[in-house]
Every structure is written in structure tokens, then in C-alpha cells.
Computed example of a mutant assay.
Amino acid sequence: MSSLSAAQLASVSDEILVEYCRNGDRQSFQMLYRRYQQKVRSTLYQLCGKTVLDDLVQEVFLKVWQGLPKLRNPEYFATWLYRICWNVATDQRRRFAKRQTTSLDGLSESSAQLTAPQSGGLTSLHYKDVVQQGLQTLSLDQRAVLVLHDLKDLPQKDVAEILTVPVGTVKSRLHHARRSLRQFLESQGVQL
């Protein structure tokens, strides 16, 4: 099917890559993976933390590969992908909560050590760590809205579609999440 080179595939739209994938073209799927892997990883890190991040990223892309034949509107691939991220993150939080109720010795995710990416100066690393800790204090619903809208730059309409909630709910959660995160950061000495 695909006689396109890797360079040509890199400039092809998501919609066309999805169509190639539906016809079994693994090279097109690898291009979609390369295009979105870092975004998926970042989103899952912000929603779930670092603990099982690699497994969650693999789970998302496995679900993407399996679900591509059922994707009705390939032009909405990115929104669909973020919906899968949300579902995987939600499932992970449920598994984590279930383990917590069965094991009193488990560490809570919010107290787990978080390691910031190794870039920038010490101040930058500290700030990223504090922001990640602040995200962990939010409810999953608030965190998801904040991550998808403010950090991933998705429009509120797309966030509402991904989370299957009304746009008004997105706005409300966003307002409360921003306020809570701001209060947390200020309590940690971060000047805003």
C-alpha cells in the first residue's frame, strides 16, 4: 500500500496516515506513533505520575492500533487519541485506588517521589516538580481539564468531547483547577 518514503510520510496528514494504517501499513502507524508519542507521554505523566508511565504509553498505542478500524472520523484522530489517553488514565487511577483499599501499606500517588525531566537549571527542575506536585493535589477531573486545555492547548470544545462532558462543565472545572493550583503554588513559595 505505502510506497511513500519515511520523509514523504512525515508530511502526510493524520487522516491519510490513519487510512494507510487501516490497510495494515505499519510504517504509517510508526509515523503516527512518532508524531504523538511525546504528547501522549506528557499527558499521561501529568494525569498519572511517573510510576507506570511506560506501560500506560504502550497501552494507549495498543488501543489506538486496535481501534483504528473503528474510528469513524479520521480527521479527528488527535481528539480520539486524547480520549484514549483519558480512558487509560482513568483505568489506571481505578486500579491504583483498588490496590490502595486492599493494601494499607501502599504509598499514595500524591506522595510518590517525582523526577522532573533533566533539562534547564535547578530552578526550572524545582518549578516543574512543584507544578507536578500541584497537579497531583487536584481531582482527576480537574487535572484532566487543566492538562488538556492549558498544557496541551486543546480548545474547550475538544476537551468537552474527550471527557464527554458539557463545555460549561469544562469551564467550571478549569476555573476551580486553576484556582486550586495557584493556591498550591503560592503555598510553595512560587511567585505568580
Rank of each mutant, 00 (worst) to 15 (best):
E59F: 03
Q183I: 05
E59P: 05
L181I: 03
T79P: 00
Q27F: 08
K39G: 11
G120K: 07
V147C: 03
M31W: 03
L154E: 05
D158K: 02
R72E: 15
P117N: 08
G134C: 04
I16E: 15
P166W: 07
K70L: 13
Q136M: 14
T90H: 12
Q66R: 14
P117E: 11
Q133K: 15
Q37R: 12
G134A: 12
K152C: 15
R41M: 09
L17M: 04
R22M: 07
P74T: 08
Q142K: 14
Q58V: 07
V145N: 01
R95N: 12
F77Q: 03
K157A: 14
L151V: 07
R95K: 14
Y45T: 06
L17I: 10
A160G: 06
G121M: 03
Y36D: 03
G106K: 10
E161M: 13
T90M: 11
T164M: 14
S187Y: 04
Y33Q: 06
I162C: 05
T90L: 15
L68M: 05
A6C: 06
D153N: 13
V130F: 01
R35K: 08
Q133F: 02
S11C: 09
Q183W: 04
S13H: 08
E186S: 07
T43I: 03
V145L: 05
S180L: 11
K63P: 01
S3V: 11
L163Q: 00
F184H: 11
S103L: 13
V12K: 06
Y76G: 02
H149S: 09
V159G: 00
R173K: 13
H175T: 06
A160E: 01
A7N: 11
Q113E: 14
L4N: 04
G168T: 12
G106F: 15
L114A: 05
G189C: 07
P117W: 08
V130Q: 10
S108C: 09
S124G: 04
L148H: 05
R26V: 07
E15V: 04
T79Y: 01
V167G: 00
P117Y: 13
H176C: 04
L62V: 15
Q183H: 13
D55K: 08
L114Y: 12
P117C: 10
S13R: 13
D153G: 03
C48E: 00
Q46I: 02
G189L: 09
V12Q: 11
H126D: 11
S3W: 14
T101F: 10
V40C: 01
G121N: 14
L163D: 01
L4R: 07
